[in-house]
Design a protein around this nucleic acid. Structure first.
Lengths: 139, 139
DNA sequence: CAGCATCCGTAACGATACTG
DNA sequence: CAGTATCGTTACGGATGCTG
């Protein structure tokens, strides 16, 4: 943990704060839940109102029952969405966003907006990949 | 894409927009890049200013060289961060956020803020897991 | 110091089949 | 309709050793 300064060091440590390390845990916690392959998609779809199982499956093309059920279960356990089962003859279950999940959805929407706004730029950069090699000389 | 209504349907489609399916691709693209295990941490650390390889490794406890290098490479390719190599006797390389990555960082910070604000609530909900079984009768 | 190459374990994910 | 259970594949991610 001690600062091993080999040569010049004297680097611009500045505020030094960066990440308090306390937050690192939070980020990972949230990311493991929201950052997986389907959670955000489900949350985004649920924004359009209560949706039932099969509708979810139809609105999210590539998802499998396994993942849909699994992700739905996790989101429900975390209290981000609610599950309501109607005891009807043809079983019906509706999933909906709860306030907590709604708050997260706001951030997800921003992320989606950002993605939609810059995705072509990112793809362009990804193509150039390694072209812009900036070499600075500094004895 | 056509609406196959099994039984009652007539569900509250409302705006029906939900996700234009066009965006689904964007979300996944961004999530696969940002939603992995380390990208966000690196971006968050980089917010504190240009940082060099070993400093990054020291500020992110659990990361391995493989993942650090790999993630750094991807972020650089996407144009989210910049890589500057100084041709000095002891090699020095500094990574820094570029405007594009900075914009994403703003969203990331919100996500971190949300996580820090609700992580205990989520953990609490996760513990109850399955206690609040709401069954609605309707037939 | 910065980075790459290789091996290997884990678990995330998808496809299929079966149940209430 | 709404799930559960099992299996196989793949990739993610970590440890180690070597190069410039």
């Amino acid at each position: 943990m001690q600062d091993s300064a080999g040569i010049g060091m004297a680097a611009s440590v500045g505020p030094c704060a960066s990440i308090p390390a306390d937050h690192m845990d939070f980020i990972r916690q949230v990311l493991d839940r929201v950052g997986d392959k389907w959670s955000m998609l489900i949350i985004a779809v649920l924004e359009g109102g209560p949706t039932r199982y099969t509708d979810l499956q139809r609105q999210i093309p590539g998802i499998s029952q396994r993942m849909l059920t699994h992700t739905l279960h996790q989101l429900t356990e975390d209290g981000l969405i609610s599950r309501t089962a109607y005891a009807e003859v043809p079983p019906r279950v509706e999933y909906a966003l709860v306030p907590l999940g709604g708050g997260l959805n706001e951030i997800v929407k921003q992320l989606i907006g950002w993605a939609a706004d810059h995705h072509d730029e990112i793809r362009a950069n990804r193509s150039r990949a390694g072209t812009t090699a900036s070499s600075a000389s500094r004895s």
